[in-house]
Each structure stands twice: as C-alpha cells, then as structure tokens.
Design a protein around this nucleic acid. Structure first.
Length: 445
DNA sequence: TCTGGGGTCCTAGGACCC
DNA sequence: TCTGGGGTCCTAGGACCC
C-alpha cells in the first residue's frame, strides 16, 4: 500500500501561513516573471480562474474581485515543503518526495502498526497542519496510480481529507467516478483520443485489454498504467535519505539526468554583456544544484529563446552544446563553457526573451572516468575544489549568490544596496523570505 | 506591454563502431 | 544481381508530470 500526501493549493497555502487574514479570501500566486497563474485558492477557482492563465489577460477580473496576488517565492515554498516532508518522515518507514507539494509514503505492512489506516491517514493530515500550517489530503491505495486517484477524490468524498481504497471493489468504484483525463498518466492528447472512442472514465480505460494500452498509449508506459490500475505496482520507489549530520536537506537516490536553470527576462535583451551576465548566473545556479546532489556534468548546453508568441515561422529556442574534456561541477569551468556556448549562439541584434543553461551527462562526483587521456588534471585542482566548497558554505550561511564569479555581474549600487540586474524577471508582488532570511523574518506585533 | 520552469520516459532514425 | 549482425551514442520529437 502507498499513501499520497498532497498539499492543498500549496503556494497559496504557504502565503496564507504568514498572512492568516487571507483565509477565506481569493488568492493567486503567479509564475516566474509574473507570467501566469500557477496556484489558486478555492475562492479563486470559484471565480473561474484557470491554472496557467496569463496574468495580463485576467488582471481586470482579479482587480474586480479584489483577488490578492503574489509573485512566486520559491525560497519560501521550498522551505515549507522541507518542513512538511520532515513531519511525514515520522509516519512511515519510507518517504518519496514526488514534487514540491506531494510525497508518497510507504504503507507496506502499515496495518500491523495502525490497524485503522483511515484514522492513521487523518492523523497524518492533522499533524502536518498543526506543525506547518499547511492543509493536505491523503489517498491510500495498493499502487501509486490508485493512490493518486484516491487523493484526487479525497477532498470531496474522503473523511477528514483522507480516502482509502483497499479492496478491488473499492478501486473499481473509484475508477468509475474518475473522468479519464484525471487519471495519472493520461494527458491531454491521450484523453482526446480516448474520448473519441467513447472511453470516458477510469473504469472504462481499465476495462480495455492490456495490449491495447501497450499498442496505443506509449508502449511500456501504457502497459504499466494498465497494471497500476489493476493493483499491480509498476513504478519505482525512490525514498529520500535523511542525512543525520545535516538534517536540512533530504537527498533522493533517484538518479538525476540533467540540471537546468532557465529564466524569462523582464524585457527582451540583446546586449552581449547583459546576456553574458545572465548566462553566467544561470550556469552558476545549475552548477550549485549539481554539487548539492553530488554530481558532475559532461555537457553544457546554452539555451536562448526569442519571443515564442511572435507570429513568425521557425523555432523560438536555440541551443549550443559544449562537451567538456572532463566531467565537473566546478562553477568556473562550467561558466566558461556556458559563455563559449553563448558566443557561438548569439546573433547580433536579435532580442532574446529568455536564456538558460542545461547541464547533462551527469555522473556521481568522484567516479567520473577521465575522458581525455592527454589532459592532465589542472595543477591547482585541489585549490579550486577548496575554493568552490568555501563558496558554497558562505552562500549557504549568508544567502544565495552572496559570493559569486564576477562574470555573473554586480547587483549592488554605489551605496551597497541590493539592485536587480537589468535582465531580472518581474516580481512585483513577492512576499518576504519569512523563513530563510534573517532580515525578512515574520514580524508579529 | 504583458503568456513559467524543471523534470521524466520512450521511440525512431542516423552516424558510427567492429 | 548480389550488400550482415550486433552494438553504442546522439538528437529530435512526442508524451507525460508537477
């Protein structure tokens, strides 16, 4: 058995923890660059506001109904997510973090400890709410796919936000209630195809022959979906590992294949120097992510994007890949490669709307075989490793990007005040970093 | 003027290797 | 006229997830 714990309207709920007066009022959170709506309170959903809707199109509606708007604040959401996972870790032998607002719990054999699984699930919800302020729902079922389904139904039909599907009959009943597009693994395309065949519910999908899903729904992916719907677990299990020394960051053993940092600019940019600072910043952030996971990369891909909504033919995304002689997570080497890529890619006079850096060809640090027999390790390799480690610990202690490469640019004015780089995205409504910055702590008066 | 970011898996086809 | 078999790696594209 698996339990899926899902935080309700997660980003909005995080904002409400520190602004309880917004309880019961319509609230939305915007994507990076204040682009689209990515989290909505129940009241905002009731106004007809849709997930992913462009902010500039619904602005009049938001003003009309006095909807409270937030720019996204990932430092806050990431920290709240970590707290939720920490609470969950006390309730199961294993926790798999699936996304920033969802986690699976290993409930195998849980019956022995908690004969009443439903009551146990309710206790999970209550404890998370009490310890973090975040409301959740829990779905419990024999497979991850069925647990997702149970979770989806839990809010409306569950007990205290919890729904337990245990017997085949219970699973069948739930599947019959589920629109086919709500099944985990059935996206827009497959949903349309299925509806054309008059397959409208999860139960109808599960009733198709296994080989049909293999043939028409992505090969083994479809086959796995069929089996999961029939109670046979097919998905991997990748629990987080708690580092005893540093209880801050759980790390997953799931292998990662890439680390990427891309951003839209607040306004289009064509200046080489500005683009270089942005790309250097993204390279450093992606490299930091790599080191956090103990990985090194073989390949650096620089991404530049023009206006993807412009009514012109041709692609809006351009990439240049730089292969490294040796896999590394060193920010200096990765930034240098990224800037090389940028020089290859950039076309004079073209206005770019976004940029990014993708690191791939990943391997665990220390195990990477040397690709180039004739390139000796740099003589200052050890010093440079030490420098990187020092940089990471300074940034961990005093705030992200406090110490960085000069290539990433300077964002202080003459008086030493923080200043946004010219390429920075819009974030007009960001809340304070209540839990991760000393000078932005929540104040109670 | 204004439309996010970060991932996964699978398949097919081409280049290249012995 | 006839043109193997078994691989790897890379890229692009399509599907999905949050």
């Amino acid at each position: 058995m698996y339990a899926l714990v899902d935080c309700n309207n997660f980003y909005v709920s995080c904002e409400r923890v520190f602004a309880p007066q917004l309880e019961g009022r319509p609230v939305v959170v915007l994507s990076n660059n204040d682009g689209c709506l990515i989290s909505r309170s129940d009241e905002a959903k009731a106004l007809g506001l849709k997930m992913g809707e462009p902010y500039h199109l619904v602005r009049p509606l938001l003003m009309q109904h006095q909807v409270r708007v937030f720019s996204s604040n990932y430092a806050l959401y990431g920290d709240m997510s970590r707290r939720v996972v920490q609470v969950l870790s006390h309730f199961a032998a294993g926790v798999e973090v699936y996304s920033i607002d969802e986690a699976f719990l290993d409930f195998q054999g849980m019956r022995l400890l908690a004969p009443d699984l439903l009551a146990y699930g309710i206790r999970v919800c209550e404890t998370v709410k009490q310890h973090t302020g975040i409301p959740t729902c829990v779905g419990i079922a024999p497979t991850k796919t069925l647990a997702k389904l149970a979770n989806r139904l839990a809010r409306k039909q569950g007990t205290g936000g919890v729904l337990l599907l245990e017997t085949p009959a219970q699973c069948q009943e739930a599947l019959a209630l589920a629109p086919v597009e709500s099944i985990w693994g059935v996206g827009r395309r497959y949903a349309r195809k299925l509806k054309e065949m008059d397959i409208n519910t999860g139960a109808q999908l599960a009733a198709l022959p296994e080989h049909w899903l293999r043939r028409h729904m992505g090969g083994v992916v479809g086959q796995r979906l069929w089996r999961e719907l029939h109670g046979q677990p097919c998905h991997d299990w990748n629990p987080v590992e708690w580092d005893e020394a540093d209880h801050q960051l759980p790390t997953s053993h799931a292998s990662r294949h890439s680390a990427v940092c891309t951003r839209s600019f607040g306004r289009p940019q064509h200046e080489p120097a500005v683009l270089a600072e942005a790309v250097a910043t993204f390279a450093a952030k992606a490299a930091e992510k790599l080191r956090r996971h103990g990985l090194v990369a073989h390949l650096v891909t620089v991404i530049l994007g023009t206006d993807k909504y412009a009514p012109v033919a041709g692609p809006s995304t351009y990439t240049a890949a730089i292969a490294l002689p040796r896999a590394t997570s060193n920010p200096t080497l990765l930034t240098r490669a990224a800037l090389d890529g940028l020089r290859q890619l950039r076309r004079p006079g073209v206005a770019y709307h976004r940029a990014g850096v993708l690191l791939s060809g990943l391997e665990p640090m220390g195990q990477a075989p040397q690709l180039d027999l004739f390139t000796a390790p740099a003589p200052d390799h050890a010093r440079s490793e030490k420098l990187t480690a020092t940089l990471d610990s300074l940034n961990a202690r005093f705030g992200r990007q406090l110490v960085r490469l000069a290539a990433a640019g300077v964002t202080k004015d003459a008086e030493g005040n923080d200043q946004q780089p010219v390429w920075a995205g819009r974030a007009a409504h960001r809340s304070p970093l209540y839990t991760t910055r000393w000078d932005e702590l929540w104040q109670v008066s």
